[in-house]
């Protein structure tokens, strides 16, 4: 465990000893702020209209403001997480530091978990940034906090899936740009994989819908932590990390 933490700490530090951590968080905060302003404006208009009509049905801040806002985070991760994972292995391979790690008395599993936790920590930090915006809603409104727990657990797991796949891609190449582009393409594919469901047969449709990372987030967004989706995410992460482990190991054999 000490070794895992040592690697994780080194990874997290490395994001902030170069511009990359600041650029990623800045980019994230700016885009999230943009979504926030737009959705807030829409929400304010809708609630004003509702109040003007004086109907019994009023707008719900959880349902109509926070949920779409956090759903947009699933778009943000598409662009930002490839930047988080692109260097995890590529940079070590390019600079030769991978030789240091692989000849140290630590296991491949510890290196992979360390890198995964380091990337997750940066992602968690990004999610913490969104609390500022959500916190403002708590000052001026009265949202329910419980559904938020589910939503954030969901976002963390969803990001974990992307990060595990991103690490796998990074372990395949020395080139960070290639790593970024391939990871982004794969993320995008997993995001839009369910679009085809309407034009294929029912079996294929259920398969692609099941594979879609984002579709599994829907329930989390409502604040429901369903074991089906929990297991999907956890097994996806395990699969991604397993592929990374195999890739690092095969690299050893091939030289």
């Amino acid at each position: 465990m000490g070794n895992i933490l040592a690697i994780a700490q080194k990874e997290l530090k490395s994001y902030f000893s170069s511009p990359i951590g600041y650029v990623l968080i800045g980019f994230w905060a700016f885009l999230f702020g943009w979504f926030y302003i737009n959705i807030l404006a829409y929400f304010a208009r809708a609630s004003m209209q509702m109040a003007g009509m004086g109907g019994p049905q009023s707008v719900n801040i959880n349902q109509d403001m926070i949920r779409p806002l956090l759903y947009n985070v699933t778009i943000l991760v598409l662009f930002v997480l490839p930047g988080v994972t692109m260097r995890t292995y590529s940079e070590e391979k390019r600079s030769g530091t991978i030789e240091l790690l692989l000849t140290s008395p630590i296991t491949d599993f510890q290196i992979i978990m360390g890198k995964f936790l380091g990337a997750m920590a940066l992602y968690a930090l990004m999610l913490v940034v969104t609390w500022i915006h959500v916190g403002v809603l708590f000052i001026y409104g009265h949202p329910e906090w419980k559904p938020l727990v589910g939503a954030y657990v969901g976002l963390l797991l969803l990001g974990g899936c992307f990060i595990s796949i991103g690490m796998f891609i990074s372990s395949l190449t020395k080139n960070q740009v290639v790593s970024f582009m391939v990871t982004f393409s794969i993320f995008l594919f997993f995001w839009i994989i369910s679009w085809i469901s309407s034009s294929v047969g029912p079996t294929a449709a259920s398969v692609v819908t099941y594979l879609s990372i984002v579709d599994h987030y829907d329930d989390f967004g409502k604040g429901v932590i369903d074991t089906t989706h929990l297991i999907y995410y956890l097994s996806f992460i395990t699969f991604g990390l397993f592929m990374t482990a195999k890739s690092v190991d095969s690299e050893r054999w091939r030289g």
Partner: peptide, 26 residues
């Protein structure tokens, strides 16, 4: 082990680097 190219992390100071290596070398 000293590989052909010293495996240094460019973003770390020498002290930070040696402390990190000490950790992972047990």
């Amino acid at each position: 082990y000293l590989p052909e190219t010293p495996p240094l992390y460019p973003d770390m100071t020498v002290l930070e680097y040696l402390e990190f290596v000490a950790k992972i070398k047990g």
